[in-house]
């Protein structure tokens, strides 16, 4: 009935050498055994289903998965779908702007907070707070803020500027940028926290030495501090990239893909095809395209990481 506890106890006492064969084996492999279930689940639930999605993308699956193989047909249909092409354009616009603006604002906030200001903890909390919200909340709040009849446009007009226009949310040409705004608002604080930690890790003696040599603050940041933030930049980049790729909830809450399908992202396209349109195989094909794109971004990172570890060793 109760085998594990005595084993652990004996092991603790350092007597496991004297135990029987099974107990000995259990004690030696305790860590592997403890990890086995999660490894098995990950293998099945992550990698297993990745492979399965790949298989489905080559079939004629509609409502439920079927295994009638049709080669690359679904990929051809995917790329002939105008909304998929909009979604692909959008993810690049969104990801590039989101990552760039969030990094710059996050960095600026970190540098400002780093000036040994009073009540630093207070400001840090304020900037970090949006991170505590889910994208659904952020999206809904910004939907109201950006709605011309409820939010900023109406407010400014009530102040007396009657011709003021700010209707990006309802204009198909600009709606994608409202996603960037909401995303940046959500994530800049987090980026700030990452950069702030990195800034605090820089040896103060170097900056002091530079100051003695007559360098100004701007010079010190530009030539000494920022170049040392390389690893932090990489972390920020990887985290923001995966946030951008999976920002599904933000679109659902803020624009629902509209107006006129102008703000679909690959993730919302995939969901719509699979669950709304009974096109499971097209959905799977789009998932594979997303997967391959992410792989293309992440693999060089992992590769350099592994190589660095090997070099260090």
């Amino acid at each position: 009935m109760s085998t594990t506890f005595p084993v652990l106890q004996t092991a603790k006492r350092g007597q496991w050498r004297e135990g029987s064969g099974v107990k000995l084996w259990l004690a030696r492999n305790a860590s592997q055994l403890a990890l086995a279930p999660s490894v098995a689940i990950t293998l099945l639930a992550v990698y297993g289903f990745m492979v399965w999605t790949g298989v489905v993308s080559f079939t004629a699956s509609k409502m439920l998965p079927s295994y009638e193989f049709v080669g690359l047909d679904q990929y051809w249909r995917l790329w002939s779908n105008p909304i998929w092409r909009i979604a692909v354009d959008n993810i690049f616009i969104f990801a590039i702007l989101f990552i760039a603006i969030a990094s710059v604002i996050g960095m600026a906030l970190a540098i400002l907070v780093d000036q040994k200001i009073r009540a630093e903890g207070f400001f840090r909390t304020i900037y970090l707070y949006p991170m505590a919200l889910s994208f659904i909340v952020t999206g809904t709040a910004w939907k109201w803020i950006l709605n011309p009849g409820l939010g900023i446009e109406r407010m400014v007009r009530l102040w007396g500027w009657d011709s003021f226009r700010f209707d990006w949310l309802v204009d198909p040409r600009f709606a994608i940028y409202t996603l960037v705004m909401a995303g940046v608002w959500q994530s800049s604080g987090f980026v700030m926290a990452l950069f702030l930690a990195a800034l605090r890790g820089i040896d103060e003696d170097i900056t002091k030495a530079a100051r003695l040599d007559g360098a100004g603050s701007f010079q010190i940041y530009r030539r000494i501090i920022i170049p040392q933030l390389g690893p932090a930049f990489l972390t920020v980049f990887v985290i923001l990239t995966q946030q951008a790729v999976k920002s599904f909830d933000l679109v659902v809450a803020l624009t629902a893909g509209g107006p006129g399908n102008s703000t679909h992202l690959p993730a919302t396209f995939m969901y719509m095809q699979t669950f709304g349109r009974d096109q499971m195989a097209v959905g799977a094909a789009s998932a594979m395209m997303i997967f391959m794109t992410v792989t293309a971004v992440v693999t060089p990172y992992l590769y350099s990481d592994v190589r660095k570890q090997r070099d260090d060793a």
Partner: peptide, 13 residues
């Protein structure tokens, strides 16, 4: 779905 996509894109663009 095709009708939906075309009509809504047309209407808003």
């Amino acid at each position: 779905g095709v009708f939906t996509d075309v009509v809504s894109t047309f209407f808003e663009t």
